[in-house]
Design a protein around this nucleic acid. Structure first.
Lengths: 350, 350
DNA sequence: CGAAGAGACGACAGCGCTGTCAAGTTGTCG
DNA sequence: CGACAACTTGACAGCGCTGTCGTCTCTTCG
């Protein structure tokens, strides 16, 4: 064991406050406040002097004082359920990046979608915490209790991939129906007719949309859906595996499987490998999300990529704009482009 | 497309403040404050009356006011680098769970370990934000600048898996050296002699410890390490794949590969499958972390499981105890038990 | 050149809590 | 039963900012 590197502890000078800056710049604290908040009506020369003082003292405004006195807390809340943890890394990364650029901080809160108290929890957080806005991920973005709590608290929020969008509610998403439709159509074009679908959680609206797209593509192509090939999963690798085994044990098994997310698709691939079926020669498998699992699995998964990071950034941009008075038309929230990522897990039916 | 479910918006009554509670309970606001903070010297009967009023009004203390006036903010900070995102989900889950139980909130902040300004960023966060403590994940937990900033800010913190531990600094970890040693020994016992090691990032102290354990086991067994079999990775699937290809193209290729984390191990498995080698028949592969990748990959990975969630909980418990005056001996922080998870990716050499 | 309007800036009052300290109340013990 | 200690409680002053509003200095234009 080596010894730890030396660590220098700077001697602590008391944290400067706005008064110190004001004194040094020879102005009132209110003027300092104006400069800090980019308010108008400060002479350029004065502004420069204040900025110099801020820099010299390395002054950092106190968030608690700010949010107590003012309306804004410079803090955003992220609400998520364990189910969307696959999402979480990317989304959080995007959010944090933009937060950093804009001087915001992120409060992360996990909510259980099944919890009857979820609404109350959220209103508690909103009330105590004074965040400037919430970013709500699926399936919470479809949870009526939570949305009601948010409305009641009059805190702005952005929904990530809600099942239903309306002009009244800002959101970010992709066209999940179109994406699933497109991927299904690809399978059909490859020649598949017996295509299974593994659904995500019922409560997860975005996953429902994927199923809608799947059905739309099939019916347009005049292919009938065999109910025996539609299964209910819960987004985990484990259910993908279990359901995959079931599907492959069928007398008339599917030639392709569309799973509502990549983890379940990976489970299907594992199931195939258990019974010695080759993917994609004997069975095509596609997923949704382009998560880490899609890359790691052998063969790599054909899937739908959502620009999750970008969506996170957009959500933050929107919320920040909203909290800074008026936002421009179409600023931030809205629909993003998806992409079908073709890899090695699908091909023509055997 | 279906129509959205109806949403009820409760009419908004102004948020109750401590004065309202005081008035209803017929006491001073200070007494309410005492009850809220579980301070002593309040008659049981008075306490009950206050609690009744709090419940009746659904009063929630304001965090900003609290942290401005008092010493505690009831907020913890989580510092992480993108590298540790594999970790992040589990750790964050554990942290959030305990935070919830204790009435704390979590501020998440991403730091780039390579950023020369990381120290300044952290002191900025500490200064502005008044968090009660920080949880620092690798590799930031080995970053001298950040630790210095934390010390200077006099904010308590807990390091997750630091390379060097000292009594002066609270930490949570597992015995990474012992874990790697044990897993390596398993490989040796299976009969392997040519064992490759894929290192993690240099800056990642915990990964260094894993390499130490690897070397310890080999030298104890009298097996010499072939330098050609030690490679530098960066924790990603991609490097695992690349390095795996290189290793397998060697004239005298290894019979086993130990990767410093699961993602890289998954890459090696993918490389093996490319050249038609069977794992574990032709090649054994083991990883570290028991991440999602370990389960998803075929064959499933033999790896080391860290109780990440539990470590997160312990970190929070420690920080909260620390901020509530004195903590008991050995409260929270410390060393946790690891576990070797034997799955299907290793076996005797060919 | 004077009146009106706009731009710059400061004084001051809180935001909603907690810490301090002093006052009032009850209990204890010789 | 009185003196003193221990427990309860409240008044009040901030914590470090921002919002409001008033004052004063420039412009601008008839």
């Amino acid at each position: 064991m080596k010894s730890p590197p030396p660590r220098i502890v700077a001697s602590q000078s008391p944290r400067p406050k706005i008064d110190d800056v004001a004194a040094r710049a020879g102005v009132s604290i209110k003027t300092v406040s104006r400069v800090l908040n980019d308010e108008p009506n400060v002479r350029a020369e004065t502004r420069a002097r204040v900025k110099e003082a801020v820099a010299a003292l390395n002054y950092q405004p106190d968030f608690s004082a700010r949010s107590l006195a003012g309306r804004r807390s410079y803090m955003l809340g992220l609400l998520y359920d364990t189910v969307s943890e696959g999402y979480l890394n990317k989304l959080q990364r995007g959010i944090l990046e933009t937060c950093g650029e804009l001087g915001y901080h992120l409060l992360v809160e996990r909510c259980d979608n099944e919890d009857v108290d979820a609404g109350r929890r959220v209103s508690g957080i909103a009330a105590r915490t004074r965040v400037d806005g919430f970013i709500v991920t699926p399936p919470l973005s479809d949870n009526a209790d939570i949305l009601a709590a948010l409305d009641a608290a009059r805190t702005p929020y952005v929904l990530v991939e809600p099942a239903y969008t309306s002009d009244a509610t800002p959101w970010v998403d992709i066209d999940g129906v179109a994406a699933a439709d497109m991927l299904t159509t690809r399978l059909i074009d490859l020649g598949h007719r017996r295509i299974a679908f593994i659904k995500g959680l019922e409560s997860h609206g975005a996953a429902l949309l994927r199923f809608d797209g799947f059905n739309a593509a099939l019916s347009r192509a005049g292919v009938e859906v065999d109910p025996a090939l539609v299964k209910q999963g819960d987004f985990t690798f484990a259910t993908g595996l279990t359901i995959g085994r079931g599907l492959l044990a069928l007398a008339e098994r599917p030639t392709a499987v569309f799973a509502a997310n990549d983890d379940m698709a990976a489970g299907v691939i594992a199931a195939a490998s258990e019974v010695g079926l080759q993917v994609p020669t004997d069975l095509s498998v596609v997923g949704f999300d382009d998560s880490l699992a899609a890359e790691i699995v052998t063969p790599q998964l054909t899937t739908v990529r959502q620009p999750i990071e970008e969506m996170g950034r957009a959500a933050v941009a929107f919320l920040v704009a909203a909290s800074r008075g008026r936002l421009e038309e179409g600023d931030g929230a809205g629909r993003h482009a998806f992409e079908i990522v073709v890899r090695k897990s699908d091909g023509p039916p055997p």
